[in-house]
Amino acid sequence: MTHISRFLTDPLTRLRCAGLFEGTTLLFLLLIAVPLKHLAGYPGIVSAAGPVHGLAFVLYIVALVDNFSGGGWSRKEMLRTGLACLVPFGTFINDRYLGVRAAAQAGGQ
């Protein structure tokens, strides 16, 4: 219950969750759905997983702009976090930086 209320109230936690969701759906598309379509002839999985990844991408973008608009981000951090969703494993790698930022925020409170 604490995790849920933290997710709903903390924008950085929302961004991290959205990033992990986006990264997972992107990897599923690239590593499972697309090979199944082209190598095994199952196009239905890409058709179903595509919209789910689209939704995950939008959630990430909204969480991203929400955080940036709240202030306190350097240009480098904004660029890195913004580009992370375009690269496979990007959001997972960037999550480490966001984790450090979250810990710093928690320490500052």
């Binding site: 689209g54 973008i61 909204v62 991203l64 702009v65 608009s69 709240g70 202030g71």
Partner: peptide
């Protein structure tokens, strides 16, 4: 249409961030 709705969602994020800052008296 999806491009325009993504832009609208971005504006939603901008508004959400600004509301958070103003309600916390940081802006």
């Amino acid at each position: 249409k999806l491009t325009l709705v993504v832009a609208m969602s971005g504006l939603h994020g901008v508004l959400s961030g600004q509301l958070r800052q103003m309600s916390g008296a940081r802006l």
